[in-house]
Amino acid sequence: MRVNVVAFCCNWCSYAGADLAGTSRLVYPSNVKIIRVPCSCRVDEAFILRAFARGADGVIVCGCHIGDCHYATGNYHTRQRMESLFGLLAFMGMERERLRLEWISASEGAKFADTMAEFTAQVEKLGKNERYTGDCIKATDAEAAEGI
């Protein structure tokens, strides 16, 4: 079975870098699906856990290079949060290689494609994820029903 990789990309740098990879017709695995966020600091731990719970096998969070965040300090928070979160998840038995934080600028189309290819290969080596799968965070289902 094919592995699923979810990539959270910030609108100003990494999402633009992904677009550049496209304009340059660089090829990377179709296992990777991108969710656009305004800033990498928008990525909540709940999104990452939900991804694994719903069948993702690898999650990569992409943002602007440190010091270049469109929102001045956003990616410093991303860095601190993701380092804590990945450490905690690894502590709880999630394979650390299924998680990645990468800084990709709008001009780094090649880096985007290469990173996605490399990460997908890494996840494929680990195989389908069987840890921390299943439904979770029912509260947000309730939110969903109310259309908030």
Binding site: N4, I35, R42, A51, R54, I137, I148
Partner: peptide, 14 residues
Amino acid sequence: FSRAQIIAEVDALC
């Protein structure tokens, strides 16, 4: 880019 919206995107992609 609400919490529910992004979670819905995650659900749809995975």
